[in-house]
Design a protein around this nucleic acid. Structure first.
Length: 205
DNA sequence: TGCATGATGTTCT
DNA sequence: GAACATCATGCAC
C-alpha cells in the first residue's frame, strides 16, 4: 500500500475549516509500545478558537486549552464527560487557538490492536466511529496531548492521502454542542457513509 | 429504528 | 453546582 507523506506544519497553518476538509481521507498513525494503529479519516469538525462560542478556547486561554494557543501541527487531547478522550489537531496561525476535532475514521493498520482496545464484539466499521472511539482505537490519553504530528519519527503523525483522488466532501452542523449549532463546520467523506455518528441528514453543499 | 437515560470527572460559574 | 466537542444500553413503537 502506498503511504502518503507526513503532512508538514504549513498544512495546518490555515483556517480550521479548510484544514478539516483537507484532512478527510488522510491517515493518522499512533505508535506505542503495543504497536501501530492507523486510521483513515472520514469525519472531522472545525473549531475557531476565540471567535467560536462552541470552542473550548472561546473564553480565552486556560491550563486546559493552552495547547490550542500554541503553534499549529500539534495534538490537543482532552478528557470529556468523565470517561472519554478526544483528539484535535491545532491549526494556525499561532495564537488563533483554532483546531480540528477528529470525529471518525476507518482502521487501516493494526486491526487486532484496535479491536483489543475496544469493547469485545464491536463491529470493525464502528471501531473508530466517534471522537472518543477514534481516540480509544489509537490508544490515546492525556499524555498524547501537545505532541507535534508533523515529525516522521514521532509517536503520533498524520499522512496525506495515499490515493490521488480527494473524497467528495459533505458539510453539516456540528454535533454535541449547544452554541453556534448552525455553523456547518462538520465535514464527512461522502464515499464512506458507514462510518459516522448521527448521519448527515441534509448535507450542505 | 429511534429516543431517553445513566456512567463519570474535569472545568468553569 | 451546572455544564460538558460522548458512548452504549434499554425500552417503546
Amino acid at each position: 500500500m502506498a503511504r502518503g507523506r507526513v503532512l508538514p506544519r504549513s498544512f495546518y497553518d490555515r483556517a480550521p475549516d479548510s484544514v478539516a476538509q483537507d484532512l478527510l481521507g488522510c491517515i493518522v498513525e499512533a505508535e506505542s509500545a503495543e504497536g501501530v494503529v492507523a486510521v483513515r479519516l472520514v469525519e472531522t469538525e472545525a473549531y475557531a478558537g476565540p471567535d467560536d462560542p462552541a470552542s473550548h478556547a472561546w473564553r480565552g486561554k486556560t491550563p486546559r486549552t493552552e495547547v490550542m494557543f500554541g503553534p499549529p501541527g500539534r495534538s490537543y487531547v482532552y478528557f470529556s464527560y468523565g470517561m472519554h478522550w478526544a483528539l484535535n489537531l491545532v491549526c494556525g496561525p499561532p495564537g488563533r487557538a483554532s483546531a480540528v476535532l477528529l470525529r471518525a475514521g476507518e482502521v487501516v493498520v493494526g486491526h487486532d490492536l484496535a479491536r483489543a482496545r475496544r469493547r469485545p464484539g464491536t463491529p470493525d466499521a464502528r471501531l473508530a466511529s466517534g471522537p472518543a472511539n477514534l481516540a480509544a482505537c489509537l490508544g490515546l490519553d492525556g499524555s498524547w496531548s501537545d505532541l507535534a504530528v508533523t515529525a516522521a519519527r514521532g509517536p503520533l503523525r498524520v499522512r496525506s492521502r495515499p490515493g490521488a483522488t480527494a473524497p467528495e466532501v459533505l458539510a453539516g452542523p456540528r454535533v454535541g454542542i449547544s452554541r453556534a449549532v448552525e455553523t456547518p463546520w462538520r465535514f464527512a467523506a461522502a464515499d464512506d457513509p458507514r462510518v459516522s455518528a448521527p448521519r448527515l441528514r441534509r448535507p450542505v453543499p
